[in-house]
Simulated scan of single mutants.
Amino acid sequence: MKIRLDLMEGMGAIFLSASPAVFCVLTFFRFYSDASFFFAILFVLHGFFLYLFFIDKVGFDSKVNVLVVFFVFSGLISAALGSGSFFGVPQSLACAGYALALLHCNINPSFYKLVYYVFVSFCFFLILQGIDPEGVFLVSRNVVSVFVVLGLSLYYIACQNYCKSPSVLPAILGVIVAMWAIGRSGMASAVFFLFYAVFFTGKRFSTKGFFVFFVLVFLYFVLAGEYFNILTVGIDRFNTLGIEDVRTLINSAYLIRVTSLEWEFFIGGDLGKIYEVISVNGNPHNSYINLHVNFGIFGFVVMVFFLFYSILKLVFLRNFTLLIVLLVCLFRSSFDVTAFYGPLDFIIWYIVFYVIGFSRVNFGWSMSRGV
């Protein structure tokens, strides 16, 4: 009986520890499969189970739970009185559950690297097939770089927990995949990860790193020759557009509307009445607009406060790994709806929880440790 109980506990521990990987798989199929609603339901149910399981360990009266409950009620109020999303509330709660699982479960970075390599291999297969990234997922090609950011974030977090410096290769592959997807903010995000892996962890390109890099470049240019122009297209978009595009018009139009209508200022703006948003299929292309729409002004102010607090606290703790992960996620979220009812909520919740509830627990890697 004891052996059987130990086996059940061991299987349960494996199931809980693999939750971040389950998050990645379910999120991928939510954007890739025609059965996206089915995977969204599984995502919410699994994440909600994790939240109930781990919040019992953290404590229902903890700062973590109080913060989550506040945003649940803010989301429900904005959905009932404004144009927020009712279904987004359980998604946010599920992401909080996955974040708690990641805080409590310590997995070797090699596992997350393997999960990330599976996605990268999928992208390289599509590249070699000459497939346009725009037609791969149910949403735009910009989601490709979101998965790059998500995968690298989990890998970097795991490296921190194991006191290891992240390898350069995953970031190199991330840059190549992001270039295939063309998006400017996605390419910049991947480059930030690469810059950190090379210069801020004491690692340098080794002979092996140079060899692998040039082999990948060779495969990219030769075997995917018909896609050669996609690299120059991506770089040209930086040169010709910079950061100016429809997003600037959307941000300006939204700000004008919510500052002129007091009710929408408090409960969130109505995106369905803003022409600039309607013209791009209702996508505001900015997670901070999404934050105000879904949580109202009070939720917006509280979240911005905790994000700034997290940045300052991570600088104080010299936890540069989590700092770069958070900054990249926030940067990427400035150009698309990737957070505050998006896949990067998982990482953002994790870092906020770490700072407000776990910052005194020293299991993180930092530059000062000289690893």
Rank of each mutant, 00 (worst) to 15 (best):
S252P: 08
F298G: 05
F300T: 03
Y275M: 08
F265G: 05
N281P: 02
Y288G: 00
L271E: 09
G268P: 02
L241A: 13
I278T: 07
I297H: 00
L261G: 08
R247D: 03
T248Y: 15
G296H: 01
L291I: 07
F265Q: 04
I274Q: 03
G296C: 00
I274K: 00
F265D: 00
D270M: 03
D245C: 04
W263F: 14
N251I: 14
G269R: 05
V302T: 08
L261A: 13
Y288F: 13
E262C: 06
E244G: 09
G242W: 04
S252E: 14
I289H: 01
I267F: 07
L255A: 08
E264S: 04
V293D: 02
G272K: 05
N281V: 09
N251L: 15
V258Y: 00
L241V: 10
S279V: 13
V302R: 02
Y275Q: 09
I297F: 08
L291T: 08
A253V: 07
F298L: 14
I297R: 07
G296W: 00
N281T: 12
E244R: 12
D270Y: 03
F266R: 09
I278N: 07
V258M: 00
N283Q: 10
N290V: 11
N286D: 09
T248D: 13
F295R: 02
T259E: 01
R257M: 08
D270H: 06
L271N: 10
H285R: 01
L261D: 14
K273R: 10
F298H: 07
P284W: 03
N286L: 01
I243W: 14
F265C: 00
N290I: 08
G299D: 01
I289C: 03
G242R: 03
T259M: 14
G269Y: 04
L255N: 09
I256Y: 14
D270N: 14
L249P: 03
D245W: 10
Y275E: 13
I250E: 01
D245V: 04
N294W: 12
E276T: 09
L261F: 12
G282T: 02
V302I: 10
V301C: 08
I256R: 13
E244L: 14
I289F: 04
N251A: 11
G296D: 03
I243T: 15
I297K: 04
S260Q: 15
G269H: 06
V258C: 05
I267W: 03
V293N: 06
L261I: 15
Y275D: 10
H292C: 06
H292I: 12
E244S: 12
V280T: 05
K273V: 05
S252T: 13
V293E: 05
G242H: 02
N286I: 13
L255H: 06
L241G: 12
L249I: 15
I243Y: 14
G282W: 05
N290T: 15
F266T: 04
S279P: 00
K273H: 09
L271Y: 15
S260N: 15
T259Y: 11
N281A: 11
N294E: 15
N290A: 14
R247N: 15
I278Y: 10
L255E: 06
V280K: 00
R257Y: 07
L249S: 11
N281I: 10
G242M: 07
G282E: 02
G282S: 05
R257C: 02
G242K: 04
E264Q: 15
W263S: 09
A253S: 10
E264K: 03
E264G: 02
S287E: 05
